[in-house]
Nucleic acid binder design. Structure first.
Lengths: 113, 113
DNA sequence: TACAGTGTTCGATCAGCATCGACCATATCA
DNA sequence: TGATATGGTCGATGCTGATCGAACACTGTA
């Protein structure tokens, strides 16, 4: 474990309040992250590989929120930070919530015109 | 139907976006309204009968948000505005979401010093 | 008509959060 | 060591939404 990974503070879904879960999931950018993450195998997506309409600092902020809300797990692999969706744990804590998010049609951050 | 009821703009859950649903449900005061409403028969609770830690104007605002988000239905009965939780319709549109809200332990607006 | 009860509307305030640029830290490689 | 890439941290900003008091509107009743 690297020095950076060591400082990562994770929260298990069982310790997350409904308020925090809803707050985390209420942001459209964060829902986009969750959907992209659900479409790839665990530990295959680094933070920078997501198609998001926000700056780097904002992106970093959103990942912190998701991690604190028990929605994702993060691990450092070299200079990159890999992610994993905590699907089963979160589903046990808040049944149906993640399903609603993942069922939502993806928002288009239009590259055309 | 009274003049006041006539001006009530309702939204059916099928026309509500996930964003609007989550925004509506993210507020603790609104979740308290939903829980109290679930514990009583339809059309038996007027807006003023809810135990909420906010002023009258704020209360009115929250009911409007809930109505617009397809979570409640309202009807005027004399000077009072009665409410009904749109449980089955909303459940069909967002399965599990309302269950999470109603399962949440009630918050205590403490009357005991 | 007058009054009381219920609820809305208006205008203002305040706090929290998303957002950003700039800078810093770490890891990898030449 | 230097260069590059990834990502976090800091401080500031702007916007949205919750909140409130005051005034207004409607209903029912005396």
């Amino acid at each position: 474990m690297s020095a950076r990974t060591r400082s990562l503070t994770h929260t298990h879904p069982t310790e997350v309040s409904l308020q925090d879960a809803l707050d985390a999931v209420s942001d459209p950018v964060r829902r986009t992250i969750l959907r992209e993450l659900a479409g790839a195998p665990d530990w295959t997506r680094a933070c920078g590989t997501f198609d998001l309409p926000v700056a780097k600092a904002t992106r970093s902020h959103h990942f912190t929120v998701l991690r604190t809300a028990g929605l994702i797990e993060q691990r450092d692999e070299g200079p990159r930070r890999l992610n994993r969706l905590r699907r089963p744990e979160f589903d046990r804590r808040f049944p149906g919530l993640l399903d609603l998010v993942l069922a939502e049609p993806a928002t288009d951050h239009g590259s055309s015109a």
